[in-house]
Amino acid sequence: MLILECPYCGVTAEETEFHGGGEAHIKRYGPGSTEEEFNNYLFAKVNPKGVHFERWRHANGCGKWFHAARNTVTLEVYGTYTAQTSDIPQDIKDKVSAKVPGWSWREFE
């Protein structure tokens, strides 16, 4: 079970309090996009084993979307931050680098 903290209202709870919304920091395509862009957005997911950045919504609380950095193997949560943050906070990068030596950062769109 994941334990997440909402960066807006400060509630710390089990993942059942929240709702997952897919990968964070990707460009989302919709109306007006090409077929290839929309197809890649829907089906071409990275889905890494290990460190992953995701979108979550505090469904049973304040209702706001936020981002979480976690490890898909160990279920360790490195931290959460607001959805309006376009760059991953340095403190979260430091936590990930300390726990997963040699892990490389990929470029986010």
Rank of each mutant, 00 (worst) to 15 (best):
E35R: 08
I92N: 05
E54C: 08
A83M: 06
A83T: 00
H67A: 05
K64T: 01
T82P: 11
H52M: 12
V73F: 01
G22N: 12
E107G: 09
V73R: 12
L42G: 08
Y29C: 02
A13Q: 10
V96E: 05
I3A: 06
A13L: 02
G20K: 09
V11F: 02
R28S: 10
H52A: 14
S33G: 13
E35S: 10
D94Q: 13
V73G: 01
V11A: 09
W65E: 07
P7W: 03
A13S: 11
Y29E: 06
V96A: 04
C9Y: 03
E76W: 03
S97C: 04
S86Y: 09
A69R: 01
V100I: 14
I92A: 05
E37T: 07
V46C: 02
T12M: 08
T16C: 05
H58Y: 03
H19A: 15
S104N: 07
G79V: 05
E76D: 14
C6E: 03
T34G: 15
A98L: 08
E15D: 15
A44R: 13
K64D: 04
C9N: 05
Y29I: 01
L75H: 14
S86R: 14
T74N: 10
N71D: 15
T80Y: 02
V73C: 06
R57N: 09
E17R: 15
E14I: 05
Y81W: 13
A44L: 09
G10D: 01
N60L: 13
A83R: 02
N40E: 15
W56F: 13
V11S: 04
A69N: 01
N71G: 02
S33Y: 07
T12W: 01
L75S: 15
S86I: 12
K93C: 10
G63D: 02
A44V: 11
G32C: 07
V11D: 03
G30N: 06
T74I: 08
E5P: 00
L42M: 15
K64Q: 14
K49D: 10
E76N: 11
E109T: 13
P31T: 11
K64G: 00
E107K: 15
N40F: 08
A68N: 09
A68G: 07
E17N: 14
C6K: 04
R55T: 13
V73D: 13
V46F: 09
V77C: 06
I88S: 02
E17G: 01
C6M: 05
H25I: 05
E5W: 00
F53C: 07
Q84E: 14
G22I: 09
W103V: 14
R57A: 06
E5H: 00
S97F: 04
G22R: 11
E23C: 06
R57C: 11
A68R: 08
R28P: 00
Y78C: 04
N39V: 06
A68F: 01
R106M: 11
N39G: 07
S104V: 13
F108C: 04
E15K: 12
G61A: 12
C6P: 04
T72N: 15
